[in-house]
């Protein structure tokens, strides 16, 4: 108990850090994921190939390796002077975007055929069909897997802590290096993660109920 009370500021920083990096990379993952799902169903072969390559490559690479690339190769080769937070955000966002893309794509496949056919017979173009007809209806089926993806993202953000981003794993490491009993730290950190994951699944359940219109 005392472990936490004595280090409340550090714990708060870690908690907020986890929240910040999760939220930031969730935004990146969502935008990129929807975009690349669009690529994967588009009539343009190079974009389809790019989408497929993106998903295959990122889904099969260990996240730790992506972090290594982001932290050591990107500053050396591509862009200098990005902060660790930005780099970690990019690594997490890119990794998660491949999972979001697959969820969105399978959501697109669940929209009844008649919807897209009706849109086409009204003379809508591909992007109109996707934007105005299919994606809004796919949202409802995409929400449950998206909730699991964001929970996984929250947990994956712990790896950022090992690469000098302030968050909960960093907090646990700091206290354990100072020689506090690891079991108590573990319980507190676990509790903090539970709070975040419960919040995410609660928010999504609320969204699902809002969107759950009878078809």
């Amino acid at each position: 108990m005392n472990v936490l009370l004595d280090h409340l500021p550090a714990f708060r920083d870690g908690f907020l850090g986890t929240l910040a990096i999760t939220a930031a990379s969730a935004v990146i993952a969502l935008v990129l994921g929807v975009l690349i799902a669009g690529f994967r169903v588009s009539p343009i072969p190079p974009l389809r190939a790019f989408g497929t390559a993106w998903v295959t490559l990122l889904r099969n690479t260990p996240l730790t390796l992506l972090f290594l690339i982001a932290m050591f190769v990107v500053p050396q080769v591509l862009f200098k002077g990005l902060s660790p937070f930005m780099l970690a955000m990019l690594a997490l966002g890119f990794y998660t975007s491949s999972f979001v893309c697959e969820a969105v794509r399978s959501g697109i496949n669940t929209v009844p055929l008649g919807q897209a056919e009706a849109a086409r017979s009204l003379g809508m173009t591909f992007s109109q069909t996707l934007r105005l007809i299919v994606l809004p209806q796919a949202t409802r089926t995409v929400l449950p897997p998206l909730s699991s993806i964001f929970i996984a993202l929250t947990k994956n953000s712990a790896i950022a802590g090992a690469f000098s981003v302030t968050e909960l794993f960093g907090f646990a490491k700091l206290l354990s290096d100072q020689g506090y009993a690891i079991a108590w730290i573990f319980l507190w950190v676990a509790l903090a993660y539970l709070v975040i994951t419960f919040a995410i699944s609660g928010a999504f359940r609320l969204l699902e109920r809002r969107m759950g219109v009878a078809r």
């Binding site: 947990k155 802590g161 794993f169 490491k173 354990s176 730290i185 950190v189 993660y193």
Partner: peptide, 14 residues
């Protein structure tokens, strides 16, 4: 619910 990394780290310290 707990990130795998934290579980592994805690077991390692133990």
């Amino acid at each position: 619910a707990v990130p795998l990394l934290i579980t592994i780290y805690v077991i390692w310290v133990l």
